[in-house]
Simulated scan of single mutants.
Amino acid sequence: MGEPLPYVYRWNRQDRKGQPCELLIRGKTMNSCLVRFADGYTMVTSRNAIMKNKALAERSTE
């Protein structure tokens, strides 16, 4: 995982607020997803808890 991760975790669950993560699996029925953080930790959470990584978006427009 050397490349920047495309999402940022927004909620303060398990002290992960503001940490970059990647979306592994997306569920439809309950709006859930499986995310993995840079340290390898994975969790199932709401898709409302993640947002696009703005720093990564700004870098790609330059």
Rank of each mutant, 00 (worst) to 15 (best):
K28C: 02
S46I: 03
S60N: 07
C21G: 02
T29D: 12
R16W: 04
N12D: 11
W11H: 09
P6L: 06
Y7F: 14
G2S: 15
L56Q: 13
Y7S: 01
V8D: 13
Y9F: 12
L34W: 12
P20Y: 08
V8R: 11
M1R: 08
W11Y: 01
T45R: 07
W11K: 14
R16K: 11
R13F: 08
P4Y: 10
P6A: 13
T45Y: 11
N48K: 11
K17F: 01
I25D: 04
A49E: 01
E58M: 07
A55T: 00
Y7P: 00
E62Q: 10
R59I: 10
I25L: 11
R59C: 14
S46F: 06
R59V: 10
M51V: 07
N53S: 01
M30R: 06
V35M: 03
N12T: 03
G2T: 09
N53L: 00
D15E: 12
G2A: 15
K17P: 01
A57H: 02
R47F: 12
P6E: 09
T42W: 03
E3G: 03
Y41Q: 09
E3I: 03
R10V: 08
T42V: 15
G40Q: 14
N48Y: 05
W11C: 10
P4H: 02
L23N: 03
T29M: 13
S60R: 10
T61K: 08
G2E: 11
T42F: 07
L23Q: 02
A38N: 14
K17N: 03
L24C: 09
C21L: 07
A55K: 04
L24H: 04
V44F: 10
G40N: 03
C33T: 03
Y9T: 04
E62C: 05
D15F: 08
M1L: 10
G2V: 09
Y9C: 00
P20T: 04
I50Q: 06
C21S: 10
D39P: 03
A57D: 12
T45L: 05
D15V: 09
E22K: 14
I25E: 13
R10N: 13
G40D: 01
K52S: 06
N53Q: 05
R10E: 05
E22S: 15
V35H: 02
E3C: 14
N48G: 13
N48S: 09
N48L: 05
M30A: 02
K54T: 09
M51P: 00
P20F: 03
R16I: 00
R26E: 12
Y9N: 07
E58P: 00
V8N: 14
F37D: 08
R10I: 04
F37M: 07
R59K: 12
Y7W: 00
L24Q: 13
V8G: 08
L56H: 10
Q14E: 15
N12F: 05
L5R: 07
V44G: 00
L5Y: 13
G27H: 13
R47P: 01
C33A: 14
I25P: 02
P6G: 11
R26P: 00
R16N: 05
K54Q: 13
T61R: 15
D15I: 09
G27F: 15
L5D: 01
K17S: 10
